[in-house]
């Protein structure tokens, strides 16, 4: 379900976790479903392991703005090491991803444990052990597609229409077996909510 207002998503992770792929997969799938979308990565030093971000805007109408996403509706955190132990989004240790985040922001986190509860608890935190699911299904610790499954469930997007597009795009780059494994990751993420 795409709201009348533009839905803004920020992906945070580390180089090599498939963050750009995730934002492009989602943008393309939404466009193929007749919506308007933007998908763009943030570029810095191109090093595997460096913190990176990517962005999505989803809308029913044409998107004009080209500014960065300042007040995201959703933040997806790909790497467990990006989240402070106390889980407080206001903690300066979370400054990589907490810009514009409020108690209302949907947080989707790749964590091997429950999100730490604290005094200023956010209302919409969803965690999943995406790394271990990806290891099990793909054989590599790439959490992007599992988190994508969760994201499309939480945004109430049309699962069946989107996955066709995901599959087509992944099939251009990856061998059939890996594509299938990624599709299973999406399904697991989707069913985890």
């Amino acid at each position: 379900m795409v709201k009348d207002k533009i839905t803004e998503i920020r992906w945070h992770g580390r180089g090599g976790q498939g963050i750009k792929t995730a934002s492009f997969l989602l943008a393309e799938a939404m466009i193929n479903c007749g919506f308007f979308a933007q998908g763009f990565p943030e570029y810095g030093p191109e090093k595997s392991g460096a913190t990176v971000a990517a962005y999505n805007r989803l809308s029913k109408t044409r998107i004009l703005t080209h500014q960065s996403i300042k007040n995201p509706d959703v933040v997806v955190l790909m790497d467990p090491s990006m989240i402070s132990k106390d889980g407080d989004f206001k903690n300066p240790l979370n400054s990589i991803w907490n810009m514009g985040v409020t108690e209302k922001t949907i947080i989707i986190a790749n964590l091997p444990r429950e999100f730490p509860k604290n005094n200023c608890c956010m209302e919409n935190i969803y965690t999943i052990n995406a790394t271990s699911i990806a290891r099990k299904l793909i054989g590599k610790p790439i959490p992007n597609t599992t988190l994508m499954g969760m994201l499309i469930r939480l945004l109430k997007l049309d699962y069946h229409k989107l996955i066709q597009s995901f599959e087509d795009r992944l099939a251009k780059k990856l061998p059939h077996k890996i594509v299938e494994a990624n599709m299973k990751c999406i399904e697991e993420g989707y069913n985890a909510v």
């Binding site: 466009i31 998908g39 763009f40 998107i63 080209h66």
Partner: peptide, 9 residues
Amino acid sequence: FITSHNLEA
């Protein structure tokens, strides 16, 4: 980047 790397319709 703003246009060159932004995926859109």
